[in-house]
Design a protein around this nucleic acid. Sequence first.
RNA 1: GCGAAAGUGGCGGAACUGGUAGACGCACUGGACUUAGAAUCCAGCGCCAUUGUGCGUGGGGGUUCAAAUCCCCCCUUUCGCACCA
Length: 835
Amino acid sequence: MKRYNPQEIELKWQKRWEESHAFACTHESDKPKYYVLEMFPYPSGNLHMGHVRNYCIGDVLARARRMQGYNVLHPIGWDAFGLPAENAAIQHNTHPAAWTYSNIANMRSQMKRLGYSYDWDRELATCRQEYYRWEQLFFLRFLEKGLLYRKEAPQNWCPSCHTVLANEQVEDGCCWRCKSVVEQKDLTQWFLRITAYADELLKDLDLLKGNWPDRVIAMQNNWIGRSEGAEITFPLEKPAGGQESISVFTTRPDTVFGVEFMTMAPEHPLVQDIIRGMPNEAEIQDFINSVRNMDRIERQSESLEKKGIATGAFVLHPFTGRKIPIWLGNFVIASYGTGAVMGVPSHDQRDFEFARKYNLPITQVISKSGALEDVSTWECAMTEPGIMVNSGEFDGLPNEEGKKKIVAALQEKGLGRGTTQFRLRDWNISRQRYWGAPIPVVYCEKCGIVGEKEENLPIILPLDVKTFPDGKSPLPATASFVECTCPKCGGKARRETDTMDTFVESSWYFTRYTSARDDQQAFNKDALSYWMPVDQYIGGVEHAILHLLYARFFTKALRDLGFYPDNLDEPFKRLLTQGMVLLDGSKMSKSKGNIVNPEEMIDKYGADTVRLFCLFAAPPERDFDWTESGIEGASRFLQRIWRLFEDSHDLLLPVPAGSSTAADAVDAEARDLRCKEHATIKKAGEDMASRCQFNTAIAAIMEFVNAMYLYRAKMGTDEGSRRVFSSAMATVLTTLSPIAPHMCEELWSLMGQEDMLSAQAWPKYDEAALVRDTQTIALQVNGKLRGTVDLPTGADKAALEEAAKAHPSVQKFTAGLEIKRVIVVPGKLVNIVAK
RNA sequence: GCGAAAGUGGCGGAACUGGUAGACGCACUGGACUUAGAAUCCAGCGCCAUUGUGCGUGGGGGUUCAAAUCCCCCCUUUCGCACCA
């Protein structure tokens, strides 16, 4: 008997798949397409279990869909620019490119050992000029269209990474990558106008409902943060800084008559002009400095005491002309709305607390009953809807109606309008680092900021540089890169030395896969419209906002620039966020030392076992614990199949899966096995390819294997029985092959089958074979199970009822009771209602 | 505070449209094989109870002939956002 030796057979089949380009695909096909994609990895050096799980999920889908008749695109590549390469290069005294490419080589070979069915002919790495040249083209087109602009503003600065970060890359006030506390720094940077798409990004979340996890949609919704309201202009008593007025954003224009003060952010551009020459200017300046010196964590912490200071200046109420004092407040966010808010202490909790603290008046303008209350007894602001009071001509209106009327009145006066605010900010894509895509722009003394000519692309990132030990980019000191000629006037110019955020590369790689080797254009339109959108995207939930929001934005922007088809609104039709692989209940991490190394597991058990365990341990979106007994169990199941096969070798005929006929199945055991076979084909097929419930697909195959063991113990050696058993074996190998492809290929060929299993069609299940001779009917009395009875399939209601009433246990429980009703569900149960 | 998800045996989890709760696996127990062990095969395995008209899907109500599943209230856990005006 041949022993199961995964090391040997896995290598053999991996070689055969590779040599035959078994998983290469083309868009020229009559089959329906299916694009399955896993989030591409950063080439950190080694695959970890999280990667393995991610790619196993994608691979089963790809293999199952392929067998089920789809033309499948399943590509892989490398998110190859980024900071760790620079840090590692400094540490190991090598070049970021060398480090990156050797990591890619290592991880590629690890992936191949796992038998993933990628179309390797489409592999790409974002650090290659063949890739980023197209990104530079997009940059120029964005610039032309006004979707890119340069702006000086306070930015999130990570002191340890020596670069700025986008808002999405700051978590709890810390750098998402290195966890250092982020500082604020005034810098001039390139911004992508993602806010121009805020409305569409929000609205199109509706298209994703049901196909993306609710929480990801909720998180994006939250992040975009739309609020409807009004901008209201308060004229300044004395003009300042050349301005006649200050505007605020509010969601409650209906409370405008309750305004008692205005609060500005200390960073508001008008503040310095307003306070100039005030008697307590120095004191105010101290307040401003103390707020500005706080780091982000401190500034935004819940426990931060709300503080303010009066400036001594006033604005005038837009309706009454009343004088309203201008305060500065440490809680007002400069970058949201207009950086100034109106203070309505009666109907906003923050303003209420602020007014109490600084002894400012409180005036009620909304009332539940319509009557005025004694606000001095209030313990908190009244934020519920009601009737407007103390509001001049608007008195007596329900506040929702008042909102509209007040906005209309403000508009007429030229002192306001209805607006919508978003929490989303434009995306800062400048990075002060070396290992990234160069920004194709020059600074010319005569012409200013000039985009490169498209025919000069790519602007190549010079590789013959040495990285500085402090992590600062060597580009500004690289004369051959910096010194250039202006594309417009031909005069001397300096090249931009910031590089692009690596999230730019990952915002469009999935479309480049559709024509990865085209060196004439970014995309082949036919291939692009054939393959896009991605049918199933799989990755970690950590990108719920970052990558997934950027990629959605990029898709819409490139669509509007004509790079993508007009109807490509969303890049990822379905999204699966896979759970983490834990060890002893906590996340695996190098620093904690609780790591399970995939390669060691492959050495010990083989790739098929690793794949099987990753998919069987839990549903894909849930976290699971890696356990030794769990992987042992997975290994045991594969050995069990191997043994069943080897022990029955003489009985096996090289028949197709699902090929035995009703005529072959002469006895009840054979009929049962055949029935189970077709049920397995159905269940495993649906669970694997449509429901992404790999654990239950595997359970179904396990049940079937158990049934085969029982059948083999009793079966005869006649042709019919052998055909039933052989067909069953072929079905096990076929349905399990997406999960454990190597072993299944090996047994398939040992069975005497000619073509490769991976090229086989998924067997068709036969509805007729699913019908069993008898069905077990549940018998209930008053909804409680009191017994079961086996009846011939198709027995009618009367027969079911009669059998139920005749059942001894049912008789016992209905004895002495009057039967009120009998509910019969054919094929399922009989419930007798008795009192 | 706002938003989302999840609570089922000793454990991971099944039950897809309300219809036999606990599939499949792990762990455990017993048996067979064996000098013995490992492996394998077979069987048992929700709880309680000296064996029942018992209890049981986080808790409490409700709808229904029938609820893990639908509705209402509450509790717990995890995650995301959070002074957003």
